[in-house]
Design a protein around this nucleic acid. Structure first.
Lengths: 217, 217
DNA sequence: CTATTAATTAAAAGGACGTTTAATAATTCC
DNA sequence: GGAATTATTAAACGTCCTTTTAATTAATAG
């Protein structure tokens, strides 16, 4: 006779990786909505459908879960970006910007995690985060700007350092401030937004078009 | 004989307003650094140099202190801005942008409080906040953009809605992401920054200059 | 087949936190 | 000048949260 009631003990043939993944996913979604202290282990475990003691069992403690979550959610995205850069797929701003925007639009938890880590991240971990994430993105933006300048694809009154900051701000902020943008400005952040927004950014940085002739070509 | 040791009881001639102000200031600084749950009443009271029970005594509870703090720190800034607008002092982007930037640079706790309220603010209060703060700033930006367009002071390939978002992003984000900007991009956010940054923003939105003649005037 | 190991549970331990309380002393009011 | 009020303190209270523990059972190894 097989027992059907749940109780302590090892369950029949349950995948340990599934539990880990469920916890990481629940942690990602919850930490994107609330602060580190504002989200409880109980909540996360309940959302993941596992016992709260599993957090300590798999990750040591709450912070261990948090850090594993950051590594396993943001890490892959950075790697994808870096591989794309290595293959020269995002050397030009016209390729890089839409890619960044699409990535942020497709992963709604991403901008929140980033900004939270920047605002409240604790010393050591925040340092690592800035180094691993922000510095790399900033580097890619800077290289694309320098390249664009050299090829005359960029307006020449743009300071390269400030240009990097302009791009950084314009790519991330609308997604971070989503509630404001949607409700106070009436701009929906939907699938189409990333594309139109990228176009607007690129247009802003393009060199001035020659003044229109009075006649059509 | 006058007692010199501290103990329970009403102190000699201490100003009740001073206690209130100390609590508000400590709350402002602490809530700018940590989340609502991440900052304890004990910490704030200690920083303010008063007993923790004073929080309940003056503000009812922790949330009462938080809301009073938001009202008394952000409220005046909004009012200053609105009065400036009423007097027509910030109708033009060249006046409005540097003013916003200077305000954010001069009050380092401001961008953090704003973004935190947007990210984690709880239902009712966040709604109020967005309505009172974000919507007004967005409105002022929008009016300045529309005005600038009418007078031909703005490039004409700029969608007004997106233009508002561009300005909003560029004015706030560098101050929010200060650690990133300073450390990953090497741009110090100091007194001089607000001015140079405003110029860069305005330059970006200005209509393209006529192509330079080959001779000096 | 038996003994060990691994995964899970419910419950409890231990700590921190927000809030309340009772005591106390300066101030104010009549 | 005495009674009531106000501002303050230290301590306690109750709650919630993270982490640990002891029990339990499936899986695995010898």
């Amino acid at each position: 006779m097989t027992k059907t009631t749940t109780g302590p003990g090892r369950p029949r043939r349950q995948d340990t990786e599934a539990v880990r993944r469920a916890l990481i996913a629940a942690a990602r979604d919850h930490f994107a909505q609330g602060s580190f202290k504002g989200v409880s282990v109980r909540e996360i475990a309940r959302a993941a459908g596992v016992n709260q003691a599993m957090v300590s069992y798999y990750f040591g403690d709450k912070r261990g879960l948090y850090e594993a979550m950051l590594e396993e959610t943001i890490g892959p995205l950075i790697r994808v970006l870096e591989e794309a850069e290595a293959r020269g797929e995002v050397a030009r701003l016209e390729d890089l910007i839409p890619r960044h925007a699409a990535m942020l639009a497709a992963n709604p938890w991403l901008p929140n995690l980033i900004i939270r880590e920047v605002l409240y991240g604790e010393s050591d971990f925040r340092n690592l985060f800035i180094e691993k994430f922000a510095a790399r993105v900033a580097g890619a933006l800077r290289r694309a700007i320098d390249g664009g300048r050299d090829k005359g694809e960029l307006r020449d009154d743009l300071d390269p350092k400030f240009g990097t900051l302009i791009l950084f701000s314009l790519t991330i902020y609308p997604f971070v401030a989503r509630p404001i943008v949607e409700r106070a400005m009436g701009i929906p952040i939907d699938d189409a937004f990333a594309g139109r927004w990228s176009e607007q950014i690129l247009q802003l940085l393009a060199p001035p078009k020659p003044p229109p002739e009075d006649e059509d070509p």
